[in-house]
Design a protein around this nucleic acid. Structure first.
Length: 278
DNA sequence: AATATTAACAACCGCCGCCTT
DNA sequence: TAAGGCGGCGGTTGTTAATAT
């Protein structure tokens, strides 16, 4: 069934916002907050529906919105995030401060799709990224992240409760600490041949042969993460990931020094993350 | 200079999930 | 527990500006 769109209510104006309407909305929200969006237009004296007001505010009038063209770095971040998250524009926007989902969506459709279309990733041999010498070294913008959290939580998330076949054998004294205590991390595995990172490094796709169900033969893995501010983080997990499209983990896996693989991972609640000196 | 085409962006629409009653 | 309201999200459309013919 579904509700009728609020804008079908009598007397409500559709279409572009005038500077006067913008000013009314800004003034009202600044002094009263938006509260109930549906009630707002009436209270503020606007002939717009609440939905339209909310959209106008969140996509255009909000004071923290960054106007102007996207930088190359921002575009690269969008491409990378889109590879991980798909069309989840709001999730992408959450990692690009000052940018809105609508704006990012527009940029994607008008610029970035074309850019990617023109880009042909280099061919990678099987398990090409397995070897450090083959895979790209971390760029200077990437930061190694370590945590003291026991990574068995992650294995439990993947394998279910109980001791995994590859329980951590190293003492936590070897680990640095991330101060975040409940950081949720989601691994997003690339499926499409690879991509360029913001430093023009090619991050290869992970070949089917990489994945294993046998953690006892696992290698340490290394992840390329995007932090809350869109910054890239390089992390490693001491287990060989099993293939899952999206794995929710408790933060803080134990992370190791030996670099092996490159993946794309994003921090779901990145605000909690504090980067250690490293 | 006029017209057609394309690009860019703002706004709308409808669905979905969460929250309240 | 179910129903309805609300906000948020992603897809899509409409309008305007820029560029090509």
């Amino acid at each position: 069934m579904g509700r009728a769109p609020c804008c079908e209510k009598m007397g409500l104006k559709k279409g572009p916002w005038t500077p006067e309407e913008d000013q009314i909305l800004i003034s009202y929200i600044q002094s009263n907050g938006h509260g109930n969006w549906r009630a707002l237009p009436k209270l503020a004296g606007l002939l717009k529906c609440g939905k339209s007001c909310r959209l106008r505010w969140t996509n255009y009038l909000r004071p923290d919105i960054k106007r102007g063209n996207f930088t190359r770095e921002e575009e690269d971040s969008i491409i990378q995030l889109h590879e991980m998250l798909g069309n989840r524009w709001s999730a992408i926007a959450a990692r690009l401060p000052g940018r809105t989902d609508n704006e990012i969506k527009n940029v994607w459709h008008t610029h970035l799709k074309k850019r990617l279309k023109n880009y042909q990733p280099p061919q990678t041999s099987k398990r090409h990224c397995k070897n450090n010498n083959d895979s790209k070294a971390p760029s200077t913008s990437q930061i190694a992240l370590k945590s003291s959290h026991n990574f068995s939580n992650i294995q439990e998330d993947i394998n279910g409760p109980g001791p995994g076949p590859n329980s951590p054998q190293r003492s936590s004294s070897e680990m640095s600490t991330v101060t975040a205590d409940s950081l949720a991390v989601t691994m997003g595995i690339t499926n499409g041949g690879g991509h360029m990172d913001s430093s023009e490094n090619f991050i290869p796709e992970i070949d089917e042969s990489f994945w294993t169900d046998d953690l006892s033969t696992a290698d340490n893995s290394n992840f390329n993460m995007v932090g809350s501010g869109g910054e890239e983080l390089q992390v490693q997990f001491p287990f060989h990931a099993m293939k899952q499209e999206s794995v929710e983990m408790d933060v803080g896996a134990k992370l190791e020094d030996d670099m092996d693989f490159w993946y794309n991972v994003f921090i779901k609640s990145g605000d909690l993350l504090e980067l250690p000196e490293f």
